[in-house]
Design a protein around this nucleic acid. Structure first.
Lengths: 95, 95
DNA sequence: TTATTATATGTGTATATACGCATATTCTAA
DNA sequence: TTAGAATATGCGTATATACACATATAATAA
C-alpha cells in the first residue's frame, strides 16, 4: 500500500516551478547541468540544488562522461503524471 | 497551453501530507469540516486552513446545510492524478 | 435577543526551502 | 603535477508555510 505521506513526498517534487521547468526540459532529451541551466535560465548552483532533490526522489537519473554529467527522466510515469495534470488544467481553463 | 508554473502551482496542493490525507478522505464521500478533522486526526483550525487552500485551487467544493458545510472533491481528474501517482510509487517499491 | 454550534480567520511562530556566494570535488589535458 | 572545466556542496538568508490560539462570523434554537 502507498501511504498518503508517500504521495505527498513524491508530488512535492513538482510543487516548485523551477523543478517542473527542469523536468519538462528533460523530457525526450538528455542534458548536462550547464545545458539545463542555459535552457531554463537558472544558475548552475540553483540547477544543481534542484537536481539533487530530483535525483534523491528518483525522478531523474544521470550518467557521467568525463567531467560532464548528463541527466534524463528516470521513468515514463513521470511524463504521464505531468501530462495528466496538464490535461486537467487545460480542460479547466474552458470553464 | 498550460505553463510550467501552473503545473507547479496546482501540484503544490498535493505536496503536503495533511492536504493529501484530507483529499483522500473525501474520495467518494461528502464530509463536514468536523467529520474531516475526526477522520484525519487534525484540529478544526488546521483542517479549515488546508480546506481554504484546496478550495482556492478548485480541488474541493462545498455546500452549506445550516451551520454545517460539506466538502467533496471537485473533479474526477483529482482522483486520477492521485491514482496514477500511487500506481507509480507502488511499482517502484518492487525495484 | 441570547446561547450554542459549526466554520473561518487574524496573529504569532517554528520550520522548511530556494538560491546566492564561495569553495570543494572530480575529471581531463598539457 | 598543475591548470582548467563541470558539477556539487556548505553556509547564510529571505521567504513561504503549517498550525496553534484566540476570536470572528454565520446559522439555528430556546
Amino acid at each position: 500500500m502507498v501511504e498518503y505521506y508517500e504521495i505527498a513526498e513524491f508530488l512535492k517534487n513538482f510543487s516548485d516551478a523551477s523543478r517542473v521547468k527542469i523536468v519538462l526540459a528533460l523530457i525526450d532529451e538528455e542534458l548536462s547541468v550547464n545545458d539545463i541551466a542555459l535552457k531554463v535560465g537558472m544558475t548552475q548552483t540553483a540547477v544543481s540544488y534542484q537536481l539533487r532533490i530530483l535525483r534523491d526522489s528518483r525522478i531523474v537519473k544521470h550518467r557521467r562522461a568525463a567531467q560532464t554529467i548528463y541527466y534524463t527522466i528516470d521513468d515514463e510515469h513521470i511524463n504521464k503524471i505531468l501530462t495528466t495534470t496538464s490535461e486537467h488544467l487545460e480542460e479547466r481553463k474552458s470553464l
